[in-house]
């Protein structure tokens, strides 16, 4: 497309702005209800902005790269992805502009079919590219969200709790993989330092299966804690898990293991020189009074 033609399209976009916008709005309406929510006002605003930037891009301003237009679409796609729009819905925003635009172009260039084809082809190509660009951005925005959620989940799923002075517990729930074990290990060791705890109970009651890898991860955690000067007890070992550990030939060495968290806690108290004892139930007395 030569520059004259581009200028013509640009001025056409300027003159027919109102018409294009209303047609486009109708077109978007016709696509039916979208999953994601967006107010009509915002949508109108977005259409208008797109049109203005599209015109600038056609005119070849800022070197004809349409950098602003891409940025605007990028932001739009990203915010839509966060609001639950599907990639198709977002791309449709761009594609639905085709019909009103072609109608206008058709009217303008109807006498010269060669030019019409050239213009439509050119415009079509750039709109397709823009549409695909929104899909790409949507996709990576979603991946970003997934990554963030995975990270959040990792942090959420590994609470280290303090049971008594110098005694920590790490109740593990769910499957242990390498990434999660590293987070678990780090947060446990860090808490050992910050609380100055010398005994940590790793409770695996909520861990469905223990394979060689998981067992190795547990052992590494225990070893690292020992290097820092804290002892670990592994509790909550169910009969099946005891069987697997032996069948797999995993050597637990001199790691202290207990069947239940309660018995592990008792040992931990012993190690700290503390004990739990029964006294007259104060709470019961006062509630009776």
């Amino acid at each position: 497309m030569n520059n004259d033609l581009k200028a013509r399209i640009a001025s056409l976009l300027e003159e027919q702005q109102e018409m294009l916008l209303s047609e486009w709005a109708q077109e978007l309406q016709a696509q039916g209800r979208q999953q994601g929510a967006i107010s009509d006002k915002d949508l109108k605003q977005q259409c208008k902005e797109f049109l203005t930037l599209f015109r600038d891009a056609v005119q070849g301003e800022e070197g004809g790269k349409g950098e602003n237009l891409r940025n605007m679409l990028g932001n739009l796609a990203r915010s839509r992805a966060e609001n639950g729009f599907t990639p198709t819905e977002t791309a449709t925003f761009v594609f639905s502009f085709k019909k009103p635009l072609y109608t206008v172009l058709h009217k303008e260039f109807s006498k010269d079919s060669n030019t019409l084809i050239e213009v439509i082809w050119g415009v079509n190509q750039s709109l397709d590219r823009l549409g695909l660009y929104t899909t790409e951005v949507t996709q990576s925005a979603r991946e970003e969200v997934i990554r963030r959620q995975q990270q959040d989940m990792l942090e959420l799923s590994t609470p280290v709790v303090s049971l008594a002075e110098g005694i920590l517990a790490l109740p593990l729930i769910g499957t242990l993989d390498s990434a999660r074990t590293q987070v678990v290990m780090e947060s446990l060791l860090q808490t050992i330092v910050t609380t100055g705890s010398t005994v940590a109970i790793i409770d695996i009651t909520g861990v469905p299966t223990v394979d060689t890898l998981v067992a190795q991860h547990l052992l590494k955690t225990v070893t690292a804690a020992r290097l820092m000067g804290a002892d670990c007890i592994i509790s909550g070992i169910r009969p099946q898990i005891a069987q697997t550990i032996v069948h797999l030939g995993v050597e637990l060495g001199n790691v202290i293991t207990k069947a239940t968290l309660a018995s592990a806690f008792k040992i931990a108290l012993d190690m700290q020189g503390m004990k739990i004892s029964r006294v007259a139930p104060v709470g019961a007395m006062t509630s009776k009074a």
């Binding site: 780090e186 820092m228 000067g229």
Partner: peptide, 13 residues
């Protein structure tokens, strides 16, 4: 040996 940092302990293991 006292005061080994967690990151150091993990790395050593």
């Amino acid at each position: 040996i006292v005061g080994m940092q967690p990151a150091v302990a993990i790395t050593l293991v």
